[in-house]
Every structure is written in C-alpha cells, then in structure tokens.
C-alpha cells in the first residue's frame, strides 16, 4: 500500500532577492542560466525548479534550502493501493 502525499511548495525567493541588494529577476536569471520568465514562474509558485537550480539558489543567497523553499502538506492526503 503506497501513500501519495499532496502538498504545495512555497518559496521566499522574492524576499531574498530584495534582501540581496534588491536583485532583479533578470540578474538572478543570468546568475542561474535560466530565463527571467522561469524566475517569475518560480516566485509565483507555478513552477518547481530542479534540485540543481534549487541548490544554486542556496549558493547565491547563502541560505539553507529549507529557508528558501517550504513544503506544506495538504490535509486531504490520498491513499492509493
């Protein structure tokens, strides 16, 4: 019996950008090697980055991963056979 846990990933990217000398999305995108639209999508919670990008973000902001991204489990957990 496997349990599928559903949840959402939130992030503090926007806050961290502003704390880091008001870094722009374009500057962050350039540092990561992604497009500005991808940064915008991550900040809006529409896209979850890969682990590689997530760890690069922790390097750029010099902050632990769990301070950047948070996992919130939904109450409606589903059990699948």
């Amino acid at each position: 019996m496997s349990k599928q846990v559903k949840g959402v990933i939130s992030n503090q990217l926007r806050k961290k950008r502003f704390e880091k000398d008001e870094m722009t999305q374009q500057e962050l995108a350039k540092a990561l090697g992604v497009t500005r639209q991808t940064i915008a999508a991550i900040e809006a919670g529409k896209y979850s980055p890969s682990l590689e990008v997530a760890f690069c973000l922790t390097d750029i902001f010099e902050t632990p991963l769990d301070e950047l991204f948070q996992w919130q489990v939904n109450d409606s957990e589903t059990n699948n056979e």
Binding site: G33, V34, T35, Q37, T38, A41, Y47, P49, E52, V53
Partner: peptide, 10 residues
C-alpha cells in the same frame, strides 16, 4: 540578451 536561451522549464 537571452536570445536562444532554453532552460529546464522550456
């Protein structure tokens, strides 16, 4: 500037 850049989301 970001011409032809295709990232993981793309």
């Amino acid at each position: 500037d970001d011409n032809l850049l295709i990232d993981e989301r793309d």
